[in-house]
C-alpha cells in the first residue's frame, strides 16, 4: 500500500477510534491554522484601517488645499 493510502486508512480509523496522542497533534495543527487565519484577518483589518486613514488624510489634504486655494481666492 502506498504511503498516501496508508495515511488515508489510518486517519480514517482514527475518526472511528480516537487516539489521544494523534488527536493532540491534529488539535495543535488546527490551533496553528486558526492563529494564522486570525493574524491574516488582523493584518487585513489593519491595512484596511490604514487605507481608510490614508483616504481621510488625502481628503483632508485636498479639502485643505481647496480651502487654502479658496481662502486665497476669497
Amino acid at each position: 500500500m502506498n504511503m498516501e493510502n496508508k495515511l488515508k486508512k489510518l486517519f480514517d480509523y482514527h475518526r472511528f477510534s480516537k487516539n489521544e496522542h494523534l488527536q493532540q497533534i491534529i488539535d495543535d495543527t488546527n490551533t496553528r491554522v486558526e492563529e494564522k487565519e486570525a493574524l491574516i484577518l488582523d493584518e487585513n483589518s489593519l491595512s484596511f484601517a490604514v487605507g481608510g486613514v490614508r483616504e481621510v488624510e488625502d481628503k483632508t489634504d485636498k479639502d485643505f488645499l481647496e480651502k487654502d486655494k479658496l481662502g486665497r481666492a476669497v
Binding site: 500500500m1 493510502n5 496508508k6 486508512k9 489510518l10 487516539n19 496522542h21 494523534l22
Partner: peptide, 22 residues
C-alpha cells in the same frame, strides 16, 4: 476517500495510530 479500500496491508489498531502519532 475510500480508494484505499481494496488494499489490506496497513494494520489498523490502537498501536498503529500511536506509531503514526510518534
Amino acid at each position: 476517500n475510500y480508494d484505499y479500500i481494496e488494499e489490506e496491508d496497513a494494520e489498523l489498531d490502537a498501536l498503529s495510530l500511536e506509531i503514526l502519532a510518534k
